[in-house]
Design a protein around this nucleic acid. Sequence first.
DNA 1: GACATTAGTTCGAGACTCGTACTTAATGGT
DNA 2: ACCATTAAGTACGAGTCTCGAACTAATGTC
Lengths: 388, 388
Amino acid sequence: MQQRATAGTEGLRRTNTGAVLRALRRLGPSTRAELAKHTGLAKATVGVIVADLEAAGAVAEEGSRPGVRGRPGRPVALRGERFVALGLELNVDYVSAVVLDLAGRVVSSSSRSGGTSDDLRELARTALAEHVGVGSTLVGATLAVPGLVRGDNRTVAWAPNLHVAWPEVADALGSLVPGQRIEVSNDANCAAYAESHHGASLGAAHALYLTGTVGIGAGIVQDGEVMRGAAGFAGEVGHMPVGDSTALCGCGRRGCWEASIGLHAMLAAVGMPELDTPLRTAEAVAARAATDARVRAGLERIGRDVGLGIAMLSSVLDPQVVVLGGYFTPLGDLVLEPARRTLDERLASAAQVRPDLRTSTLGIQAAALGAAEQSFGPVFTGQRDLTA
Amino acid sequence: MQQRATAGTEGLRRTNTGAVLRALRRLGPSTRAELAKHTGLAKATVGVIVADLEAAGAVAEEGSRPGVRGRPGRPVALRGERFVALGLELNVDYVSAVVLDLAGRVVSSSSRSGGTSDDLRELARTALAEHVGVGSTLVGATLAVPGLVRGDNRTVAWAPNLHVAWPEVADALGSLVPGQRIEVSNDANCAAYAESHHGASLGAAHALYLTGTVGIGAGIVQDGEVMRGAAGFAGEVGHMPVGDSTALCGCGRRGCWEASIGLHAMLAAVGMPELDTPLRTAEAVAARAATDARVRAGLERIGRDVGLGIAMLSSVLDPQVVVLGGYFTPLGDLVLEPARRTLDERLASAAQVRPDLRTSTLGIQAAALGAAEQSFGPVFTGQRDLTA
DNA sequence: GACATTAGTTCGAGACTCGTACTTAATGGT
DNA sequence: ACCATTAAGTACGAGTCTCGAACTAATGTC
């Protein structure tokens, strides 16, 4: 009654099919010979697997690529039209939906302000109606939320910023995708996954994603997989004791990281008011920084505390890339430069390399995109069979 | 040219053989029927695999267990005599060697003071001579060192406390195990692995091990596997900025965690002198604490800073169990109790459960034992075939 | 136009797992 | 003492799968 990952020979086929699909995602359109090289499978095996995938509509042949000596290969490419996944995000002040296809293309991407279950339901319904036709099958649907999601990928243990009745949300959304199970996932984890597959940390097996709004959250990617922790709560870094130890946090304690670098702390440091969304607020701050030295100094202070926390996290996790999302994105180097300097001062040793600090390239869609990508996870790992 | 984990059908067999071996390690002696239940394999398959393993000498039948209705099963058990692994530790003031057998029994375990390559070589040689006979084969050998080990499991990037010429060590040891490749691993990682397989965090898939001597190091186990990080440097937590931000650290910076809770900080807090080894020093402190309230107060202060760092690490990693080794072990609840209280105050949310804080049960042998266990890793994951 | 070169398929061999049917070995009741 | 019951382990045939070698196909080069 334990792991059945690869018991019989058909499980083996699934595993190998997953390897072929992964290679196609990574390499783009490839000939069977190239796939055989990259997966280590025999040419004959790849031929059979590709034929199966073609029959299922998951891949299609493209025009041949001549020019080299010998018989030209006939590249096959992932076909997007047939298989798609839905990623949703329910956040405090906005909702978004992304439809992602098997080839990794974003078919549809939409957001709107408002943070109710109805807003999300509406958005999801139109996305599905407009972009998931009769010819395409929905592989899965995942909902990203800013809160603690249990290890079962279903229930939410704690989401203080979201005023939502949980079973109700699941039911309301469940009716949109009949016969499907909507998975729930943490928003920072989803965003981290998205940045690692499509964004700023593309190709880095070990990456850390930091999102900053009113609260601070992290998503940890280790060896290409999101790290969950024992109860699924890994990455809840907002209340680490970092930065100004006297700063009062919304949670009632003092010294939490987000009390030093959360949106409100940043606004206090630069002496500016909050606008309607964190992103727009940060854009205003960035604009003002160009002319106002006091704002730059405030961001410098924030950046140092950001760097302090990243130093901490880097000591523990040793990431290759750290991606900063949320309100940090518009501020860019205004915050990242002081963070880099602090990080250099605090590196554990000369041998350790400073991780690369970058801003998010996916912006507000990161979490929903990552959620969709997570729904494709079982396909690429060979746990789910598209050809059945 | 990529992952060949499970390509052909013989790879499948290896995977399944690994599953059977794992089940035997976990459950102890089991009948074929029980193994079939627990691995999910068919009875017939288990029969074949067990027969192969028996032919290779990896398992043997035990006396039957009567008493129940029906034909009694004939339990098979892992046989220790045939396959063993060597674990070594080279530390600042001592070296140790452990010979572990396939069944998980510690065949031999020895330590001595001294931290030179020659000391270790001597210890390893006698351990091998006395406990690895002609009938037994050495599955692998791993060396644990207090330093930053690169991802290649061979080279050491930084080991400031060890005054050793690296290629020389590898050569000297390599001649002891002809035809073998000695892997190198971080000592805290090894100890964490050992505690998860044999010690205080047995059975916990997500555990954190903290070792305290002059420096502080951590080993992180996530999903049963040691977390390495991008360059293999994950878990270097000694220089996280935690605790007294004015405390001067040996690395030249201020505010490092180990400047607050390292051995020297602890001794300063209780006003006692250092003895010849950290362990003996801590035992003396523990003894004095029974009668001296000032010592208890000093340990209380240390415990709070320990708790602060663990709060940090728990927010990031969400471990189920935190094991404290090194000088913390003799002090036990004198440090753990204040740490637990601090941890309770700093938990990220009501939903998050406090990880269980325990002291190490393996003591000074933890790292060497974990190193040996790591050598068995490929056997139990099915990457290495014992029956060949 | 012959030849070298590379892509992809066909085919038979070999390895493996699985379910079913069967044998074996014990217990418990009559 | 005998037999029904129960469960463990094995034999066997069917079904999958991967693999290497041989073969066919398509293109560039000389």
